[in-house]
Design a protein around this nucleic acid. Structure first.
Length: 282
DNA sequence: ATCCAGGTCTGTT
DNA sequence: AACAGACATGGA
């Protein structure tokens, strides 16, 4: 068990429940279990004190990066709250969230599964995927399942995927896995590419459009300038900046790029969480 | 029953 | 380039 002192920009509930992670469990109050990188982390936050049930070695080599601890969120927040009253409200209310660095392969499959699904259902699908093809691990809190590797999934057929009730996403998953297995999609390479080329590369996968590609860039590679545009963010953006008019994706994306000045992805997450919580635009 | 969900693909204008 | 429908599945 280790103890970490955090600033106001670390609230474990906000971090996990803002919609970026699907593999966490709420135990009680401010206690959560997270499954990431084949490990389970029990985490408990009491004010500025965060207790993680892991070794200091794991914290330094894994969780510092996972929780994006080296980024100064207070500084970015102070910029965002000055922009306009609506963004300010969202940032203040959802303060404490951070952009996690999750495994790229996991983000790829998870956000393919996410399309046209509600968040609780995405969780069910991801969990079913892990229970079926992941590795079972026993620790002091019981058993859990890791997110499966490419090797474990490469022989899973479209039919097999259908049996997991992933619906029309079955061929998408299959194509994504084949391309990763063959090295056509290589995350080491993608990590080094500029946003636009990286996005284009990811979009070579069938079933990966701009939104899913941008989720991967944001949630796996910490590219906080990238702005995934989904139904909730669209509702929030048209409400906040376009007088509830129906404008094209292109217009919204160009506006976001210019307006949020390199912090679009982070702004997007505050807005997404706020919009979903308050059912903005429904 | 009908609609909708952290979209994308395909086929028409 | 912009727009409609289809696509599986499950919950409201």
């Amino acid at each position: 068990m280790i103890e970490i002192l955090v600033d106001d920009c670390f609230l474990i509930g906000q971090i996990l429940e803002c919609g970026q992670s699907f593999r966490y469990k709420h135990i009680e109050n401010n206690i959560y279990d997270i499954i990431a990188y084949d490990k389970r982390l029990r985490i408990n936050q009491v004010g500025k004190h965060v207790y993680m049930d892991c070794s200091i070695e794991d914290y330094n080599s894994l969780w510092v990066r996972y929780f994006d601890m080296d980024r100064n969120y207070e500084q970015i927040q102070s910029i965002l709250v000055k922009m306009d009253p609506i963004l300010k409200k969202a940032v203040i209310e959802k303060r404490g969230l951070r952009i996690l660095r999750q495994a790229p392969f996991e983000m790829l499959l998870t956000f393919i599964l996410s399309q046209n699904k509600a968040i609780p259902q995405i969780k069910v699908l991801v969990e079913r995927l892990c229970e079926t093809y992941g590795q079972v691990v026993l620790d002091q809190y019981g058993t859990y399942y890791t997110f499966p590797t490419v090797d474990r999934l490469v022989d899973v057929s479209v039919e097999d995927w259908r049996r997991l009730k992933v619906g029309f996403r079955a061929p998408y998953l299959y194509d994504a896995i084949q391309k990763v297995a063959q090295g056509v999609i290589d995350f080491i390479t993608i990590e080094k590419m500029l946003d636009n080329s990286a996005r284009d590369r990811l979009m070579e996968i069938s079933g990966v459009g701009q939104k899913v590609a941008d989720c991967i860039l944001l949630f796996a590679f910490g590219r906080i300038e990238v702005f995934p545009l989904d139904v909730w963010v669209r509702r929030m953006m048209t409400h906040a900046y376009f007088n509830d008019q129906n404008v094209s994706d292109q217009i919204i994306l160009e506006f976001a790029d210019r307006y949020f000045k390199g912090f679009g992805g982070l702004a997007q997450q505050y807005l997404f969480y706020y919009a979903r919580d308050h059912q903005i635009g429904k």
